[in-house]
Structure formats: structure tokens, C-alpha cells
Amino acid sequence: MNSFCKAWLGLVLAFLYLPILVMMVMAFNQSALYEFPFTFDLVWFKALISNERLLQASLNSVWIALANTVIATTLGTLAALAFARYEFRGKTLLQLLLLPPITIPWLIIGTAMLIFFFWSGIGRGLHAILLGHVALSLPYVIVVVGAQLKNYGPQLEEAAATLGASPVEAFWRVSLPLIAPGIAAAAAFAFAVSFDQFVISYFLAPPGISTLPVEIYTSIRKGFTPEINAISTIILFVSMGLMLLVARNYRFGGNRK
């Protein structure tokens, strides 16, 4: 059983990484038709620099992801504080309301947003995409920060209050530094959720405006473009690098060793 399971795990890992590696190799291959023999060339990365549409879409994606990170982390941390520090009527209901954004398929959420935003006059565009991304990130932030808050009861804040600190001061100088790793992890999650989000952006992007995933999807549907391999390789390094950083500094569940 031992060696069978280990070999199985090896195969599963190979399955997970095989296509990613093939794509990365192709990004460095000179042939536009993915032909062998493999000739190392940075031609597709150079082509990226002159691709205005992709550059603009990348900028849009980064700005939306950054704005999303700030907004979702702030609003989510506030809500997580309420859940961790107070018992109140309707608390369970509020927590249950976090389920729809993460369990209903994005196709349905995205088209529902399209209908409502169009109908109500909010319209489509980068602002609409940001509205949607924050909604998808909030549940993750609330859960991750909440898990961190569970490790520290209200006792420390109470001690600070006895020593004369105001509630705001107690939070700012005692609790916040303690839950900072959780907040940082939540922020990284929020960034990743937004930066990788395709479906919602796809429905909320009007013609002429796009985010990176939307632009990539359009290119794929139009036909093969080897530049997509190059930009995809960059994206994978960015998001996986971000997650490695989180994993190094934050153990999920909060028990740091």
C-alpha cells in the first residue's frame, strides 16, 4: 500500500503540473506553431511589450486587484471583528449569507450582476467589475481573518482597557498587530481572487474594456497566439509566487509553529 499510494501521489502531481510545464516551455519556443525542435527564444515575451491591448488589460487587472484588496480586506476585517467579539441576534443568518457568493456558480452570479447593473443604471465597466470582485473576496477575508481572531480572545483587549486604553486604541495597538498575519493572508487571497477572476469580469466588461483574463479568453477563442503562453507564464509565476509567500508566513488555521 505504501509504495502504491506514493506512486499514485507522484502521478497526480505529474498530472497537475504537466500542462503548466508544457505551456511554459512553449512560451520560450521560437516556433509560432509550437513545432519542435525546441529553439530557445524570448520572441513572445518581446512581442508582449508591443501588444497595447494586453498591456492595457494587464494594467486594468492590477489596479482592480489592488483596489479590491484594500476594500475587501477593510470591510471583511470589520465584519470578522463583529463576529469574533460580539454575540448578537441574526449572527448565524449573517454568516450563512456568506455562502451564496462562494457556492453559487460564477456563471449565475455574473449574469445576475449583468442584469441588475444594466437595469439599475450602474452599467458595465471597470467599476462594475470591481463591485463584483469585492463581493467574491469578502467571504474569504471574513473567514481567514475570523480564524486568526479566534486564536486571541478578548482578554488582551480587556487588559488594555483596564490599563486605560480606549476601545479603538486597544484594537489598534493590541489586537491589530496580533492578527496582522491573518489580515496579510486575507489580503493576498483577495488579490488572487480578483487577479484570477474571469467569469464575472467577462460578463461585466463592455466592448473595448477588458481585464487580463478576459483579453486572454478573447485571444484563445480567436485562435492560437503564442504570446498568450508568454503572458500566461508570467501570470502563473505571479499568483503562485504570491501564494508561496502566504504559505511561508501563515499557517492556515492560525497555529503558527
Partner: peptide, 9 residues
Amino acid sequence: LPFWSNALV
């Protein structure tokens, strides 16, 4: 790790 990378990509 792959789970936190772009699904489209």
C-alpha cells in the same frame, strides 16, 4: 498551489 493560479490559463 495550482488551485491558486488562473483557471483560464
